[in-house]
Every structure is written in structure tokens, then in C-alpha cells.
Amino acid sequence: MLKLDGVSKVYRVGTFGGKELHAVSNVSFEVPDGEVVSLIGESGSGKTTIGRMILRLTPITSGTISFNGVDISTLQGEALKDYYRQVQGVFQDPFSSYNPIFKADRIFRIVREEFFPGMKDQEWNGKLEDSLKAVGLNPAHVLNKFPHQLSGGQLQRFLIARALLLDIQFLVADEIISMLDASTRIDVLNLLADLKESRGLSILFITHDLSLGYYISEHAVILYRGCVVEMGSTDRLYNTPLHPYTRMLMAAVPRLDKKWEKVEVELRGKQSQITTGCVYYDRCPEAERSADCLTHRPPLVQVEDDHFVACSRYME
């Protein structure tokens, strides 16, 4: 089980690092074994930063991320390598994940060199073939090719196959289908869902697309400017969104099952950093906010079974 507890990421910006940029503020949630949790947010919500912190690609400023009870920030050397045996990530841009001047299957060779240095060729080839088949690729068609000779969908499957070579239990999937062609998107999405079923893989599915989050996961976390504003079971979130941001998101997202309602959406640009009050204060409809919202950031409270929201209106 992966657990985030009060995780924050603060970047120092400005000439002498004098300003602070809160990319992620005090985020806590967990991904139980064998579950898919969607992390939903727009650009700048900090969703990618959270993924990168879980993968130890970006250091945490404060808080802890623990995997099966172990604080991952303490891992070094062999222990870190061992962590990577169990936790892997796939990113948004399939082409950028490959070194363009090498063949695509080099990513497997690196895994072999680092994790299975002693393995015999035959055993390795068998293993590789198994994981390629598990992601629905025909080894004969895809090995020994350059990245640009493969489609975006094939490249993403490659990355998933790479993760399967290890004993992975947890996968961070960061917008992995947003750059794929519409007709192949659903296949990669189905593949993830199938891996969850067949291998008990836990997945943190990071996306900006609400319908994808609904399709694949039972639980979702809604992120706005680095803060969790609402989380819970997808059914509850989608049917009875409580936070004004979630409601705005549900109303604004283009859907195929219903047309946009005449809801005014705010066009104001990104406002200055809010350090004390509610992060959504300046976009929140006047009628719903109070003076208190500007000074106190509402904590995430449980409003019903499996449904949490961070809004002062639901604090009692």
C-alpha cells in the first residue's frame, strides 16, 4: 500500500530563491493494494509533481510517502533499487521517454543490465517475450526498431512491458494516454485495468480527463493548486460533487452524454499565491464563500462514507 502523509513540495523561485512556490501542499491519500486511484487535476495542480515524488524523481519538501510501511525518502543505493523493482512509472509523452538515437528496446537492456545482470540470454528472452505478450505486443513486430518506427500506443505498451519485467506492484501512470490517437487510447486504458485485475497491480492514474478517471478507477482525488479539494469514491464524486471547484469542473468538462449548461466559468487568470486561506477563494462564487475562507484553509473532512471535501461549508 502506498501512503502519502502531509506531503508538500515547495520550490524556491526568484533571484535569490526569495519566493516560495507551493506546488503541492499538505497532500494525504492512500492507494490500497490492487486498486486504481485517479489523481485528477488541471495543469498546475501539482499532479505530476506528486507522481514524480512517489517515483523519487523529485525530492519531498515535507511530509512522508511510505510504501508498505517504509518511508521511501530514506531509501538509498540497493534499497532504492529494490524500491524501483516494485514501483515504476510511465509518462505522458511516449516519444520523449525514449532516447531518440537508440533503438526502442534499449529500455529493456538497461533493465537487464541493472536488475538482472547474471541472467542467461535464453531465460531473459523468455521473460521479455512474456511481458511483451502481456501488454498485447508481438515481439517479432516491435523489437529491434527505433522509437519513430513505432506508434505512440506501442511505445506506451513498451514502457508498461518494461515495468512488468520487474516484480512491480505499483505503477504511476501520468497522463499516459493523452498523447495517443483516439482509436488506440482505450486499448491502453483497458490494458491497465486488466493488469490490475490479473496481477493485482496498484495504479495511480494521473489525468485531467474526468471521464477516463471514471472509467478506470473506483476512487479519485481532485487536486487544485497543490491541494486536495475533494476525494472519495468516483460514483460519489461524479454524482454529488460538493466542492465548488469539482462542481465547476464537472460542468465545464466537455461530455458526450450531455451539453454544456449555461454556467458562467471564470476567465480570470492564475491569481497570486494564497498561503493562508482556501486555494479556491478567488474563483469561488461570491455566494458560497465567506470572509473566513480567506483566512483559514479548510481541512479535508469526511462528509459521508467514502467522501471527503475541503470546503468551509461542510465543516460542521
Binding site: 482505450i186 486499448d187 485495468a193 471514471y214
Partner: peptide, 16 residues
Amino acid sequence: SLPKVGVKHSKQRLAG
């Protein structure tokens, strides 16, 4: 093949 809100993998598997 387009997922819609209300369609879940566990209940209705879409095909590409």
C-alpha cells in the same frame, strides 16, 4: 471507443 462519464471498465468494457 470514447469513454463517457458513467461508463466503468468493470461494468462495460469499451473496445478500440
